[in-house]
């Protein structure tokens, strides 16, 4: 095929189309990565370490209009989010108009800690990356022990002795 002389115009167009496809591919991978990226947000209502902000008694925290989490001092709830831009709405027990603000999660994080007291007190650092030190891990299953010829939803293949 490559031996044949191709009209340079067609060759150029072919190159353009192929280049366009590559660009589109990279764009789509990037797009889905950014929009589908999951973040675990720990909604935290503990006192700040330096005591500058204290836990709120009975705050209602709602993210992206989901059902509100009712939080008391010392509470920590897990919220799974997809994408980076989210809206937080906090209803304080004092009956003031709710605090609403947008939340921008850094792309390259898996787990974040959102401190409600700090946010309400308008302190910096209300959102920080949370690094798990030692995750509990279930024991490894035996690898390579494959009963290759059973169906995926089969009952246990070997009857117990």
């Amino acid at each position: 095929m490559s031996e044949k002389k191709v009209d340079p115009k067609i060759a150029a167009r072919r190159l353009l189309v192929r280049g366009g496809l590559v660009v589109a591919y990279v764009f789509l991978v990037g797009l889905f990565f950014v929009t589908g990226k999951g973040h675990t947000v720990l909604v935290d209502n503990k006192d700040a370490a330096d005591g500058s902000a204290v836990g709120i008694n009975g705050a209602l925290v709602s993210i992206d209009g989901r059902e509100a989490l009712e939080q008391y001092p010392g509470d920590r709830d897990i919220v799974l989010l997809k994408g980076q831009r989210h809206r937080v709405r906090i209803q304080l027990p004092s009956g003031e108009p709710p605090i609403e603000m947008s939340l921008a999660l850094p792309l390259n994080t898996d787990m974040l800690l959102l401190s409600i007291p700090k946010l309400v007190a308008k302190q910096a650092g209300y959102l920080e990356e949370f690094v798990q030190r030692d995750q509990p891990r279930p024991a490894d299953e035996k690898v390579g022990d494959n009963n290759a010829f059973t169906s995926p939803d089969a009952p246990v293949t070997t009857p117990a002795p």
Binding site: Y25, L28, V29, F32, F33, T35, G36, K37, G38, K82
Partner: peptide, 18 residues
């Protein structure tokens, strides 16, 4: 997709694209 923690339909599309 699991490794990069990309979820939802976007995660499926991401997996399919890769």
């Amino acid at each position: 997709a699991i490794n990069f923690n990309v979820g939802g339909v976007e995660g499926l599309a991401f997996a399919a694209l890769l």
